[in-house]
Simulated scan of single mutants.
Amino acid sequence: MRLALVLALLATPALAGVEEVTQQHLRPGVAAFAEATEALAQAARADCTAEALRPAYDAAWTAWSPIADLRLGPTEPAALTIAYWPDQRGAGAKALRGLLASDAPALRDPAAFAEVSAAARGFPALDRLLGDPELSGYGTNSPTCTLVQTVTADMAAQGAALAEGWQAEAEALASAGEAGNARYLTEDEAFRALYTQILSALEFTADTRLGRPLGEPGRPRPTRAEFWRTGRPLPNALASAEAAVAVAQLLAEIPLPLTEAALDQVRHAAAAIDDPTFQNIEDPTARLKLEILQQRVRALLDIVEAEVGAPRGLQPGFNSRDGD
């Protein structure tokens, strides 16, 4: 669920840090992801087996995480085909099974594969193909190997397209308020767009990345964790918080001691978690540790609102945390 946020702008000086976020975080971020996905595709062509591919897979996640929750411009649709989650109806698993049981062109042709379900592309596909014990034992001459190579080639194509497409969004952010800019009519709009993404990322992490596996009291749902088969739940949650604070610091252009202290608390809570996949949360102690991490992320969100938004007159209207 994305953060539904209405921001009322008061009469305060506007726009600080938009260019810094664009030049120091977003542009290098999409470029790094393009490089990482190309390296992943090359690694799959050299050795498609799950064990051999895991380092390149994790490196692609490292590159994706800083930009994953900044859904602006081409990143918005790209996030659906690169890291579709949650897949509540299991569409990805069904599509992958169908491909492996067939000789369809999409099995080996990246162009045809680009037409399959978003839930069966990108990281969701690799989480199953590399992490599911029933699928990950494939050999180099198997249909699964062919599919892994197709998935990674498709990811490389998406990474390259995202890097190219982001140039226009970067220019729109940098020229906010100038004549001819129909996307950001004022500098304030550009600032608010980035600020809203920070809050949205933190809320998504607390409520969905951590909330889904926690489930209800006495009824945890560990297999609802994000890409748990390949060990991504905890790294993704922590990376999201780290990225949100990095963007907040660039956007604010002033020291954020409270935000930095709150991020340290998130890191401390994350370090206390024994299983990064969250598959042990039926144990009360493990569940408590995950609940503490969730609380720390929510506290970080509140502090960002107070330390970054409030000084600029940005006040939240309604959002999903209100229950409206």
Rank of each mutant, 00 (worst) to 15 (best):
V18G: 11
D58S: 06
P13I: 00
I67Q: 15
A68R: 14
S65I: 08
A59P: 07
R45A: 14
A56K: 02
E38P: 02
A41I: 00
F33C: 02
A43N: 01
G29R: 09
P13L: 05
W64P: 12
L15S: 13
P66I: 08
T12Y: 13
R54N: 10
T37W: 04
L53I: 04
Q23I: 00
A16C: 05
L15R: 12
Q23D: 13
P66L: 13
A52C: 07
R54P: 00
W64Y: 15
L53A: 05
V30A: 13
H25F: 06
D47L: 04
T12H: 12
T62L: 12
R54G: 07
E20M: 03
E35R: 14
W64D: 14
A46C: 04
V21G: 11
A68N: 15
E19K: 11
A34H: 09
A44T: 00
A43R: 06
T22I: 04
A68G: 10
G17I: 01
Y57I: 01
L26K: 05
G29T: 03
L53W: 06
A36G: 02
A59F: 10
A44R: 00
A63L: 10
W61P: 00
A32L: 05
A63S: 11
E38T: 05
A31Q: 12
W61F: 15
L53E: 05
Q24W: 01
A41F: 02
P13K: 10
E35L: 07
L26I: 03
D47V: 07
E20H: 09
A59R: 11
Q42M: 09
A59N: 10
G29V: 05
A60K: 09
R54D: 08
A31M: 02
A44G: 08
D58Q: 14
V18S: 08
I67R: 14
P13F: 10
R45D: 13
A63I: 02
